[in-house]
Design a protein around this nucleic acid. Sequence first.
RNA 1: GCCUUCGUAGCUCAGCUGGAUAGAGCAUCGGACUUCUAAUCCGACGGUCACAGGUUCGAAUCCUGUCGAAGGCGCCA
Length: 588
Amino acid sequence: MSLLRELSVLVGDAFSEVGAERRLGEVSVSQRPDLAQFQCNGAMAAAKTLGRPPRDIASDVARIVSTDARMVGVEVAGPGFLNLHVTDEVLAQWMTKTAADDLLGLHRAQPPRSIIVDYGGPNVAKDLHVGHLRPHVIGESIKRMHLVVGHDARGDVHLGDFGLPMGQLLAILEDADPDLPYFDEAFAGPYPEVSPVTVEDLQRLYPLASARSKTEPSFQAKAQQATVELQAGRPGYVALWEHFRAVTIESLKVIYQRLGVHFELWLGEASTGERLAPLVELLLDRGVAVQSDGAIVIHVTTDEDKKELPPLMLRNSRGGSTYATTDLATIQERVDVFEAEDIIYVVDLRQSLHFQQLFRAARLGGIAGDNVTLTHAGNGTVNGPDGKPFKTRDGDLPRLSELLDVTVDLARSRLDENQLALELGASEREDVVRMVGMAALKYGELSNHRTTNYSFDIERFTQLQGKTGPYLQYVAVRAQSIIDKAATKDIVAGDFLAPSDAKERALVLEIAAWPEIVDRAIETLSPNVIAEYSYELANAFNHFYDSCHIMRENDPARQQSWLALVRLTRAVLVQALDLLTIEVPERM
RNA sequence: GCCUUCGUAGCUCAGCUGGAUAGAGCAUCGGACUUCUAAUCCGACGGUCACAGGUUCGAAUCCUGUCGAAGGCGCCA
């Protein structure tokens, strides 16, 4: 149990004793550190139900709470705020407990839940561009925060490997090279093991195919036909499509390695293939799905809607399935096969209508029961430094791999300019350069709220000072540097003493606040809560660093206590940054 | 046309689900280095929280309207 929870129990008991609801005793970190360490606002809320002035209630609660040995000052302020301080001994005990905990005080998930985070969404034959950065990084972070507290969380890349784009690729390839065995319906196999196309071929062909679909009705018809036949399982198409998929996955893994995102599941829209027909049958049987204009749809509008929602399209009039069908089948698979209790989609907010329809359809069709939560944790878009949509000179979206190159190059020149990490060998230094570049990118990304359409300004993100990824790495490295120096002088971390300095106390309080930060980040699926905390923790450490000189301290017990605090601070900072998918070098 | 989201310092953004004096970075100005890494620290400057009403003891936060921005709206994904 965290310190805040302990205090909430204490104050909650007191509220209960004066006849108010126990939950009103919830204690939070004070918004006014000049007045208090912790605060409780419950008295104002209790005033209504109890019919008494809030200050009276607060005074009664304060009298009860102040008898507890842990409390050193309990005051009523303003309209009925309860201002709380704990003794320095409590803080020291708290640090001891936290440092001994392998989770550094975080609340364990109880019970752990089975969670699928759907956050990649790359498409076969399409290169990743800057727009893909947000869902990948945010999703990875959200997955990690669930994992760290003990949930069984898995990331599913959910590859876009289905639908018309696949038919378009088949059609354009058949046009270009009709002699390939994949297009010969008489061919008995086996098909060649080596792909006839590279991922670069696909990336070049796809835009051509897409453009032809718009201008050439005959080509569009052919692509639609190929799509339906692929979905029906035509062997040559399936074999070729499997090559499309394989070469795409291979190239994705390279960039994911650089980016530090990892998927437990490499499923895709097409993974639900054999589920689609039975699912549609099931929904027709249940009367949830109906025929409409030659298509099969689910009507999802309810009486409470101001405006009618478009129905979910299960099967179009050509007999083809759509992404709505595969998404619904994917929910079924996640519930039935993976026993998912929570499904979280980190997907562009512009798809919120789709998810609204999808979730309703899943409920109506009995695909997801009440024991399953479905959440669209939508992300905003990325704009250029000018505040307009991010585009290259040619008007295209910049490729993600090029963006990573530029970022790492910029990180390298920042380190060069400041003559940093020069003592490292070439390979270790290049590793640090990569970590700094990625940290810059990711902190720039995650320090914004998930839903914000933010301005991507790599010049700003790679700054070594200010609220940036590299700054946070610097603070962790600085802490490590003290630990290393102490080791050379045989100074070891000792017991935590009661804080003796205001900056030291502030740092301890910051660390004590960590469990609730993670709770809130998980509850709201907001990595920026952790990003904000990381920065505050780093600042608190720098203030402590400035005012408490560890190597120069004469009292050995105090020196050892401070060293223990340095180690603990670094551990929490590293844990926080890991949840933001940011790596910390030993030196830089 | 309808629906959704948004509008906070010169710029980029937070704001813990309604609490105390709205915060941070950058930029600007002024101070602190024979350093445990100054990538830091201390201070100053900067706001009618788009606007107008309403609910409440209390509103950047909730409700209504206006203005402005972005996005979405059955056979694309």
